[in-house]
Simulated scan of single mutants.
Amino acid sequence: MGIAAGVSLVVGLLTLLAHVLMIAWTYRDATRRSSHPAFLWALVVFFAPLFGVVLYLIFGR
């Protein structure tokens, strides 16, 4: 395994971690602050991570 493969692995894992953390944060925040179902907001963030968080911040709170 070369240096490029190792760097790619680390970047991929960090991206996956960020995605999971965005979903978890949105779900937890939506259960407290949103009148819409938190599960639906989590699905929006799952399918469109950055756009979904922006949508949640505009319409979900």
Rank of each mutant, 00 (worst) to 15 (best):
G12I: 04
V11L: 14
A4P: 00
S34K: 00
P37L: 13
L13T: 02
M1G: 13
L17M: 11
A5D: 13
A4M: 08
L16N: 04
A18F: 11
L13F: 06
A30I: 05
A30F: 07
H19S: 08
I3Q: 10
H36Q: 15
S35F: 03
T31M: 13
L13D: 00
R28G: 11
D29T: 15
S35T: 14
A5G: 06
G6T: 04
A24S: 10
S34E: 00
A5L: 12
P37H: 11
V11G: 00
S34L: 02
P37C: 07
L14R: 06
V11Y: 03
I3S: 13
W25F: 14
Y27K: 05
R28Q: 08
G12V: 03
A5M: 08
L9S: 10
T31A: 02
G6D: 06
S34N: 01
M22D: 11
G2Y: 01
M22E: 12
I3L: 15
V20T: 09
I23T: 05
W25E: 03
L14M: 13
I23V: 15
D29K: 12
T31Y: 00
L13Y: 02
S34R: 01
T15C: 07
L16P: 00
L9Q: 11
T15P: 00
A24H: 08
H19D: 10
A30E: 03
A30Y: 03
S8P: 00
H36S: 14
L14K: 05
R33F: 13
L21K: 12
P37A: 15
Y27Q: 02
S8W: 02
T31F: 01
I23G: 03
A30T: 05
W25L: 08
A4V: 09
V20Q: 11
S34I: 02
I23D: 01
A18M: 13
L9E: 12
M22Y: 14
L13H: 01
G12W: 01
R33D: 05
L9F: 12
V7W: 01
V10I: 15
